[in-house]
Design a protein around this nucleic acid. Structure first.
Length: 591
RNA sequence: CGGGGCGUAGCUCAGUUUGGCAGAGCGUCUGGUUUGGGACCAGAAGGCCGCAGGUUCAAAUCCUGUCGCCCCGACCA
């Protein structure tokens, strides 16, 4: 490609709307342009990188025997109603009406569509396992698109789905996808870590996220300093944390008027108590059907308590409550019935003791003796010098009333769940890939069954596997740039080589043209900077865009029959004889 | 949806407080001089000041409404 024939609008100045470095550089390098919130034009250079990433993904998917398909973005609402995700997916589901008034979904993902497809043609265990994938545009009506390509409303995603007759087969194929993902991100040159993510219906390690470590990431990764554990903070377990409700009261219970203080931070400041010395008490409704019993089993309410500086993790809470009390937990909705029973915002743990139909779940760090500040169970009041045994009594020892369990998000400094003396550290990451064991959720809902060798019908067991193609570019730019611009890994650079003639005229022009032809003939994708511009201007653009190799053609080198080769990542250029240039470029691109 | 910020040339932004000719730098175009790390000189083009209404002799500037964009929060199989 000749520079003057392409569309490469580089900019010297940083666009004011761009916050994170990858967004700034991708705009400045002329890779993308924002059309509207969460939707971007891909310009020629951006598209080339995107296509290279797609090709790598495609090759690795093909290598593990996944068959490429292309499914419509336009999907009938009925399909989503069958799986309940017309509601379950929430407002991120982009809906529209056609001229006949039919409701259409612009697909945010394709479990429904692919399950419908496979169920139409797969009816025997002999056809399994089967894996299909596509690279296709997804639509999600994000509340707040942001950070350039990181969170957008329309984006390219590689989504793959596998179908199985048994869990062993699913596990086998899951491992293949896992391996393919490692190859993909390694080939793309992106530093990544794999973390345990939210467990699926299969249980165990049913889900892994591939995270590119970078400060701009939206996800928090928790890692053991022993190097043997990594998980998304949403999923991360903690090691054993000792607890005891014991300890003498530090003072008389002291009720304090605390009006107009919206958060725990504010209350803490007002009371002159640090959040880590406060109890955060949240109320959840259970899905228990029967009448509450005085013993505390089959409770209607769950009162969860964590330390003031910690966050309740709802999935951990759900698990603890399911194990101990055999009921599910629903998110609390703010309705008058709730307000009447609980002083929302001012609840204290003892309220659970007094209510016959409530149970108490306490995080170990909150189940400690000593000084606590807490809600007073009365609107606009808190108490100081809360003491567990004095305020709650021996119900704390009743397993039908009270349980101590890990119900909070992990934080830096927590013991590793491996219980090997490791401590957890926290860092930020961008989720670039996700592999997930789905189970039979979609095949059940859509009646996608197969016949086993005994002629019995069973729902297909499924896995799904996603990669955000655009996020590959973001992750690369976030992790590889300097003050001058992007440092593209060779595999996904828009062009591998830029040929930069010092002046595009005379014998320099002839030499540059010839070099450009040679590189093209050798199958090295090259852009020729044929602009009538001064060298410094061209160098600055080349560095900003970040082509891995720059070949500078000028009279200095030509006098000696040499071309200057400058690797973007190298500090200094080297002079290479014209005869050796192709070979040397290949070497530089491998490095 | 709650809170905050911003809409003026392709880009970055002044001008709005205190109403009075539409501005600068970068980029673009023309001519010239230049040419190894974002050159210089001279000239030029480019604007519904987001949009609509109002106040006023007069509105980029004040008022009302509205649309869009960015950030924080909430949301994110």
């Amino acid at each position: 490609m000749r520079w003057t024939q392409s569309l490469i609008p580089t900019q010297k100045e940083t666009p004011s709307d761009a916050q994170i470095i990858s967004h700034q550089l991708m705009l400045r390098a002329g890779l993308i342009r924002q059309l509207t919130a969460g939707a971007y034009d891909f310009l020629p250079l951006g598209l080339r990188s995107l296509q290279k990433a797609m090709q790598i993904v495609r090759e690795e998917m093909n290598a593990i025997g996944a068959a490429e398909v292309l499914l419509p973005a336009l999907q009938p609402m009925e399909l989503w109603q069958k799986t309940g995700r017309d509601v379950g997916y929430g407002d991120n589901l982009l809906k529209l009406k056609d001229r006949h008034g039919r409701l259409i979904v612009l697909g945010p993902t394709h479990e429904e569509v692919v399950t419908e497809l496979v169920s139409a043609y797969v009816s025997s265990y002999k056809q399994l396992p089967l894996s299909v994938y596509q690279i296709q545009t997804k639509f999600r009506d994000e509340f707040r698109p942001r950070f350039g390509l990181l969170r957008v409303r329309e984006f390219l995603m590689k989504d793959a789905y596998s179908f199985h007759a048994n869990v062993e087969s699913l596990n086998e194929v899951y491992d293949k996808f896992y391996g393919a993902y490692e190859k993909i991100f390694t080939r793309c040159g992106i530093p990544f870590v794999v973390v345990e993510a939210e467990s699926g219906p299969i249980g165990g390690s049913a889900s892994h996220e591939f995270m590119a470590a970078c400060a701009a990431g939206e996800d928090t990764i928790v890692t053991s300093d022993k190097g043997n554990y990594a998980a998304n903070v949403e999923k991360a377990q903690t090691g054993a944390r000792p607890w005891t409700f014991g300890g003498e009261p530090k003072g008389e219970l002291d009720k304090v008027h605390t009006p107009n203080l919206p958060g725990i931070e504010d209350v803490g400041k007002f009371l002159k108590v640090k959040p880590k010395n406060m109890l955060k008490t949240l109320v959840f409704r259970t899905d228990a059907k029967g009448p509450a019993q005085s013993s505390g089993v089959n409770p209607a309410w769950v009162v969860a308590v964590v330390r003031g500086d910690h966050e309740v993790n709802e999935s951990k809470l759900k698990q603890a409550v399911a194990e101990q009390f055999h009921v599910g937990v629903q998110p609390l909705v703010d309705d008058p019935a709730v307000r009447e029973k609980w002083a929302i915002g001012f609840v204290g743990p003892d309220a659970a003791i007094k209510a016959a139909d409530a149970v108490l779940v306490v995080d170990p760090d909150a189940a400690q003796g000593g000084f606590w500040a807490s809600g007073a169970n009365e609107t606009d009041y808190h108490v100081k010098y809360f003491n567990w045994f004095r305020e709650c009594g021996d119900k704390l020892a009743d397993p039908k009333k009270t349980v101590v369990a890990d119900i909070r998000n992990a934080v830096a400094g927590d013991p590793s769940p491996k219980n090997d003396g490791g401590k957890l550290t926290a860092s930020k990451g961008i989720e670039i890939g996700h592999v997930f064991k789905l189970g039979t959720k979609y095949s059940d809902a859509l009646g996608a069954n197969y016949l086993d060798d005994a002629g019995q019908q069973h729902p297909l067991i499924m896995g799904c596997y996603g990669i955000g193609i655009g996020r590959i570019l973001i992750a690369a730019v976030e992790s590889m740039h300097d003050e001058k611009g992007i440092l593209w890994p060779a595999a996904i650079a828009p062009f591998s080589v830029v040929v930069t003639p010092i002046r595009y005229e005379g014998e320099i022009k002839a030499a540059a043209d010839k070099l450009y032809e040679q590189l093209n003939a050798a199958g090295i994708d090259t852009i020729l900077d044929d602009r009538d511009a001064r060298p410094g201007f061209k160098f600055a653009d080349a560095d900003l865009i970040g082509f891995p190799v720059r070949l500078t053609v000028g009279d200095r080198g030509l006098k000696e029959g040499k071309i200057e080769l400058k690797r973007r990542k190298a500090a200094e250029p080297e002079m290479v004889a014209v005869d050796n240039i192709i070979e040397r470029v290949r070497e530089a691109l491998r490095a």
